Simulated scan of single mutants.
Amino acid sequence: MNTSFFTPLPETFFETLDLGEGSIGLQIQAYREAGAFPDLENVQVAILGVKDSRTTQAQNPDFENWEAIRKAFYHMHRGNWPLQLADLGNIRAGATPQDTYFALRECLAHCLEQNTILLILGGSQDLAYAQYRAYDNHGQMVHYVNVDAKFDLGDTAAPIGPYSYVGKMVVEEPFNLYHYSNIGYQTFYNAQEEINLLEKLYFDTYRLGEVCQQIERVEPVFRNASMASIDVNAIEPAHLAAPNLTANGFNGREICAIARYAGLGDQVSSMGLYHLDDLPNCQAANTLVAQIMWYFIEGVVYRKDENSPSAKKDFIKYQVPVDTDVLTFYKSQLTGRWWLEVPIAKKINNKLENTTLLPCTYEDYESACNQNLPAIWWKARIKNEL
C-alpha cells in the first residue's frame, strides 16, 4: 500500500492527551510520524480520517473536530477487547475528489486483504462510493447498509455527489451491488419516484419511526452486509448540539445501538461515518461520535461467526407449511438468532450461489406459523429468480 496517501497525526495532538490507565489511547497503534506507518498484519480494526468535502460545495469545511473526536475516543476505556487497534492518520483531499476516492479505495482494498476492518471518519458521503469500489476485486458482490434520512440515489447522469452516489453504485460497471438497505429514512426527504424505484429493485427501506419503535429489528439487516455507513445527519440534532441538521433523527442511545449491530455483522468489513464536517466542534458532538466508534468496535468483539459451515451444523431446523410452500427456518443455539432459507436460482458464475440463508427475526417465524408469508421471503425469492 502506498503510504504517501496518509498524513500522520500531529504531535501536538499527543502532547495534549492526558490518558488514564486502561484507556484506548495507550493501546492503539497510531501513525504519528513519517516512516512509522502501523503494520496491519495483526490489526483487527483500523481507523482512518478522510478530509474531503468538496462535493458538498462547502466554502470552508471545518475538519478540526477530526482530532477532537479522536481525543474523545482515545480517552475512553476499552472494554474486554482481545483485539488490536490502529489509527492510520488521515487522507487529505487530493488534487481532485477522484484522487481522494482512489486513495481511500486503495487503503480499504489493502485492509480487506489483511482482514482488517476499516472504520472511516469521513467528510461528504460520496466517499462511500470509493468505499464500495474497494470491493470490486474482493470476489463477492456487495450488500450495503446505509443509516441515512435520505436514499441518496440522485440523478445518475449528473456528476457524483453526496446525495447521488447510491445511484452511481446501481448503474456503473462493474455491477457489484447486490443489495442496498436504508435504515432511518424520512419520507418527506425522498421523492415518491425514488421510493417506488427502490421497491422495484427489491431493496429494503426502514422508516425512522418504525426503527425507533423496535430498534432490534435492524440487527438482521447488518448480518449479511459487506459495508455500512452512517450519515450523522440521521441523528437528532439535539444530541449533537448541531442546530443546522435535520429536525428529527435517532437519539444517542439508538444510534449507538445501531452501530453495535453493525459491528456484530459477521461480514461487515468497513464502516463509514460521514458528513462529520457538518458537526460543530463541541464536546457533545465529539463525544457522541466517539461513542458510536466505541460501540461499533464492541460489536466486532462479540461476533460469533455464524456464517461458517461449522456453526450452521448446530442450528435448530424448523419447517413451517404455508399454503403450497414449506418454509425452512434455522435458529442458532448460541445466540438465539434466526435465519430463513430462500431458494437461489442457479446461474453461471453467480457470486451468490452459496448464499441460501436470509437473516430474519423470531417475528418472521411467528408470522409463518400464523400462515402469513414473511415479506422478506417473497421479496428475496422474486429477486433471486430475476
Rank of each mutant, 00 (worst) to 15 (best):
L40V: 09
Q57A: 13
Y31A: 08
A46F: 12
F63K: 00
N42Q: 14
A46K: 05
R54W: 06
T56S: 14
R32W: 11
E64H: 04
E33I: 12
Q29E: 14
P38N: 10
A34M: 12
D39T: 12
I24P: 01
K51V: 01
R32M: 13
A30W: 03
D39G: 07
V45W: 06
A30Q: 03
Q59R: 11
P61W: 02
E33F: 12
Y31T: 07
I28V: 15
L48Q: 02
S53I: 06
V50H: 03
N42I: 02
D52W: 01
G22T: 06
T56D: 02
Q27M: 06
N42G: 01
R54Q: 10
G25M: 09
V43R: 02
G49H: 04
T55S: 14
D52C: 10
G49E: 07
D52E: 15
G25I: 08
Q57C: 11
P61F: 04
I24R: 01
V43P: 01
V50S: 03
D52M: 02
G35Q: 08
T55F: 00
G22L: 05
Y31D: 06
R32L: 12
K51L: 15
D62E: 13
I24W: 05
A46L: 12
I47E: 05
G25D: 08
Q29N: 13
Q44I: 04
L40G: 03
P61T: 03
A34S: 11
Q29R: 10
G25V: 09
N42D: 13
A58W: 00
D62S: 13
Q57K: 13
D39M: 10
V50T: 10
Q27A: 12
